[in-house]
Each structure stands twice: as C-alpha cells, then as structure tokens.
C-alpha cells in the first residue's frame, strides 16, 4: 500500500505503477458529466475555473444526499469514459489525477503519458464503505446541479488502485490477460 497526499506532484506520480494499491489523504474535487462540460466551456471562453486545478485529483462521483448526522451520503465512483471527452483539456491546465471506474479512451491514456497524470479506480458500488474515508465536504461550484455539483472533499486513507500510469500501462489489460482462458481468449 502506497500512501500519498494531495496535491499530486510529478515525483509522487512517477513513483506509481499500474496495479499499485494506494491510500490517498488530502483533498479531492468531485465532478461528473455536466460539471465537466461547464469547466471546459469556461476554458473555451478563456475564464477562470471555480477551483485551483493545479495538482488536483478529480473524483468522478455524485454522492447520495447525506443524512443530517453524516458528512456525506454514499459516494462511490461513476464510470469514467463519459469524462473522456474532457479529460485532456483539464490535464492541460494542471489536473494530475482522476478517480473513477472503467477503461479510458486511448487518447486519454496517451494524454496521461504526455501530461504526467494518473488514473485510479475505486471500487464501484462500494459506496457506503468508501464514504467512511471522507472527512468533510463543501460545495465549491454549480450547486444547481445537485448530486453533480463540484465538491471539495477532505479524505483520509481513501483506498484505490492505479489503473493507468505514466508509462502507458493499463491494469485492466494486464489483469484480464493474466486470467483469461479458453476459446474466447483475445490475446
């Protein structure tokens, strides 16, 4: 288990390889489909983003509403490919990490090599368990989007695994080829 803290630096990222189990402490920013579109629209218009994206990790999540006694509702990752259309633009302005689930497009994997950024997966559907590692949450933009608004989450010992590293390796491909057998084998 590798322990890392935010913001992410090139040194932290250079030390991470596909398959590494990672524990993250610090701050994550949440954004999913519509929030990504708005962020990229701002960049297109030459405007400032609503948070400091330099060295940041964006967590693809739309939490369920929190009960009055809790800091956050259930908060597991959503599928990442829907953010593929926006990921490179955000890497270009300093985003260094992404947390989601599922395979990324080839151009996003290549962009991670070019911009020295990293992609982690958290366990999709383990949302009540993942919420235990979230210490505080504040909405920083787009409150009108409800579950899709951008939040700043303080996390401690947030568990995930490295899927794509800066050498271009992909844990989904490595893992599957290790276990596939029989006539439907693809490689």
């Amino acid at each position: 288990m590798k322990k890392i803290t935010t913001p992410l630096t090139d040194d932290i990222i250079a030390d991470l390889s596909a398959g590494d189990q990672v524990s993250i402490s610090g701050y994550l920013y949440t954004a999913r489909d519509v929030a990504h579109k708005r962020l990229v629209d701002l960049l297109d218009e030459g405007k400032e983003l609503p948070f400091n994206i330099e060295g940041s990790i964006i967590y693809y999540v739309g939490p369920s509403p929190s009960k009055p006694s809790a800091v956050v509702g259930s908060a597991g990752p959503t599928t990442s490919y829907r953010m593929d259309a926006y990921a490179e633009r955000l890497m270009d302005v300093g985003m260094k990490g992404m947390i989601g689930k599922g395979k990324r497009a080839d151009n996003v994997v290549q962009a991670m090599i070019n911009y020295r950024a990293i992609y982690f997966a958290a366990i999709g559907g383990a949302a009540a368990l993942i919420a235990k590692s979230i210490r505080s949450v504040e909405i920083v933009a787009y409150k009108d989007l409800g579950p899709e608004s951008i939040r700043r989450m303080e996390v401690e010992d947030f568990r995930c695994v490295v899927i794509n590293d800066i050498s271009g390796k992909d844990l989904y491909e490595i893992g599957q080829s290790e276990y596939q057998i029989g006539p439907d084998k693809t490689n």
Binding site: S64, G73, S74, T78, A127, A128, K132
Partner: peptide, 26 residues
C-alpha cells in the same frame, strides 16, 4: 484483487443495512 473486492462488497452491504444508507450512491 478479486478476493479483496468481494470482502469490500460484503462489508459495504453490512454498513448499508446497519446504517440504513444506500449501498451505492447511484
């Protein structure tokens, strides 16, 4: 990795049931 995921899913289901929270945010 797969074993660890099954363990996490069992733990997640137990938390959801005990604390009456959704097992998945979706």
């Amino acid at each position: 990795n797969g074993k660890a995921i099954f363990e996490a899913l069992l733990e997640n289901a137990e938390i959801a049931k005990t604390e009456q929270v959704p097992m998945c945010q979706d």
